[in-house]
């Protein structure tokens, strides 16, 4: 512990001092992390995904997830990674999940969709009206490339244009295209609505791109991002910044109250960040095949000090 991190109280203690009990509401979102394989190795990645990773969801685990979704009826199913686009069997997985939920979401880094071999996946996304939530940290190419790798802006912009051509992000198309912007460094994200206005204006002016909603999220000090914070001498300052920005009101809106997350190997978590931190659902290691129904209202949520990232400022919902 350094002098600065000594000043930061454990997240659990702060909740107690504020008289806040963090327990589940109704669980209506299923998040599925299909694996750590990714074509990029972004500096802010909390699960350290990359081209060298081999962990991907097996067919049997996909079957278990589909069975769980069948007996649970989630309002939304959110497919993430790594790059889900690179996971074998992803198209069939999406097709099987589609009838089981109102809203099926695919998180994309855009570059993994760019390969010509992904044409089938693109067509299926549009056919199934899958919501595409794409990472796009900044309308400044230097910031985007600094976070995600050289040349990523150009590839991302080309894919966003392609998605627009398919109808994504266009009013009345029924095809939602949302962007996610994580700060390109050790600083907090901007106010979401102000950032969305600027992104929409910049994206239209610079590239003629349209999208529906911008989500502006803080980077979570885990995985590769934590390593970068350490190497760049920003760890203490960033942790202090997150803890100082703790907003008790933001606890009400945190996603773990309504979400359950399944890792690539079927292990259940309260959220994708607990997955990265290795803290299983409610602190007990269980597999998706064992759960008869989603965790109930009032059930305890496992927390760690990384939870400060979801309660800083206006929060992470």
């Amino acid at each position: 512990m350094t002098e600065v991190t000594d000043q930061i109280k454990p997240f659990e203690q702060v909740l107690k001092e504020q008289g806040i009990t963090l327990v589940r509401d109704h669980t209506h979102i299923l998040q599925v992390n299909t694996g750590l394989l990714c074509d990029l190795a972004c500096k802010h990645c909390h699960i350290e995904a990359g081209p060298h990773r081999i962990e991907v969801m097996a067919q049997e685990t996909m079957d278990d997830v589909v069975a769980f979704a069948s007996r649970s009826r989630f309002k939304a199913i959110d497919i993430t990674g790594g790059a889900p686009e690179l996971v074998p069997g992803i198209v069939s997985f999406l097709r099987r999940l589609r009838p089981l939920t109102d809203k099926l979401i695919l998180r994309s880094n855009l570059t993994a969709l760019s390969d010509q071999q992904q044409d089938e996946l693109l067509a299926v996304l549009a056919e199934l009206k899958v919501v595409v939530v794409a990472s796009f940290p900044s309308t400044s190419p230097s910031q985007t490339d600094a976070q995600r790798g050289k040349g990523v802006t150009d590839k991302s912009v080309a894919m966003l244009k392609r998605l627009n051509e398919l109808g994504y992000g266009k009013e009345g198309s029924g095809l939602d295209l949302d962007l996610v912007a994580n700060p390109a460094g050790a600083f907090l994200p901007p106010d979401q609505s102000a950032a969305e206005r600027k992104f929409k204006s910049d994206a239209e002016r610079k590239w003629g791109i349209v999208f529906n909603t911008l989500f502006s999220f803080a980077n979570v000090p885990l995985g590769r991002f934590r390593s970068w914070l350490e190497k760049s001498g920003n760890l203490d300052g960033y942790l202090l910044k997150l803890a100082s920005a703790f907003n008790p009101c933001a606890v009400d809106g945190v996603m773990c109250k309504s979400l359950v997350s399944v890792g690539w190997d079927g292990t259940l978590y309260d959220c994708d960040f607990n997955l990265a931190a290795g803290i299983p659902l409610a602190g007990q290691r269980r597999n998706v095949s064992e759960l008869l129904e989603p965790p109930g209202a009032g059930e305890v949520i496992a927390v760690g000090d990384h939870c400060y990232a979801c309660t800083a400022g206006s929060g992470f919902t």
């Binding site: 900044s138 400044s140 460094g185 907090l188 901007p190």
Partner: peptide, 12 residues
């Protein structure tokens, strides 16, 4: 810090 946190980039 404030400029970065309000969504400005280095060019701006």
């Amino acid at each position: 810090q404030s400029c970065l946190e309000k969504g400005s980039n280095m060019a701006e």
